[in-house]
Amino acid sequence: MGRSILKNLIPVLIFILLWQVIALMVTAVKGVPFPTPWQTGVKFGSLLGGQFLSDHTLYRHILDSLTRWFIGFSIAAIAGIGYGLAAGWSRLFEDATYKILHILQLIPGLAWIPVAILIFGIGETATIFMIAMTAFTPVAINVLSGVKRLDTTFVRAALMMGAGRKALFLQVLLPGSLPAILSGLRIGLGNGWRVLVAAEMIVGTGTGLGYSIIQARWTLDYTSAFACLGVICAIGLVFEQFIFNPLEQRTIARWALDRDA
């Protein structure tokens, strides 16, 4: 227990130390005040205490960002899983659409900005659209390949035991591709989060962590920008550590079985 805490603590300490060194060097060499870990921490504390940041509290920014992320990602997850299962099920549908998926995959998230603004105008919906578009492809591609890689003998076994099409889909294909679905969702979630922060900087949402960072920059409030960066990292870590890691470990342990047999 003590050892594992130490093991987790060491990279954090190294990171803070490097940050401190860089901050001091930049301040000394270039003469601009680069926020140190300590200053950022203090700022973070007062933001948590309710200090306003571009007209709103930090909580409001976090909440708005999370809401956009959640909505955009949910759309992408439902569409991506649906597409993957459908294309894995029907060869015809896969052949007709797979190339489109590949093209979509080549488009960087931020390149959707003009499309988003043209369709939805500036604001909330455009941001959500961008998140959904960037999160969709990894989910769809992963689910599709998961369904296709599913052992033929699983399908044969199910048919032999009298499974109909519906049971085959719900009781074999869906649970069988769960590991692939999870890894697709994980990548999609990460992509969505990154594009969200970037989109908020540009699309002009009025709130959100990305918006706050860019606003803080205009007002030369770099310490607040750094505090927001810290929040962004923390949110990412929380999702990895407390949602995806436990889920993946559970499924991978169980599903591993016939993979290597």
Binding site: T153, A158, G162, G164, A167, Q171, R254, D258
Partner: peptide, 29 residues
Amino acid sequence: GPERGVVFQDATLFPWLTVRQNVEFGLRQ
């Protein structure tokens, strides 16, 4: 079809089901 039961070279049990649920699969159908 279930009137011709097949045992494969690998057990091909469904890893997401418990042992009992695996045996129940055909009964459920």
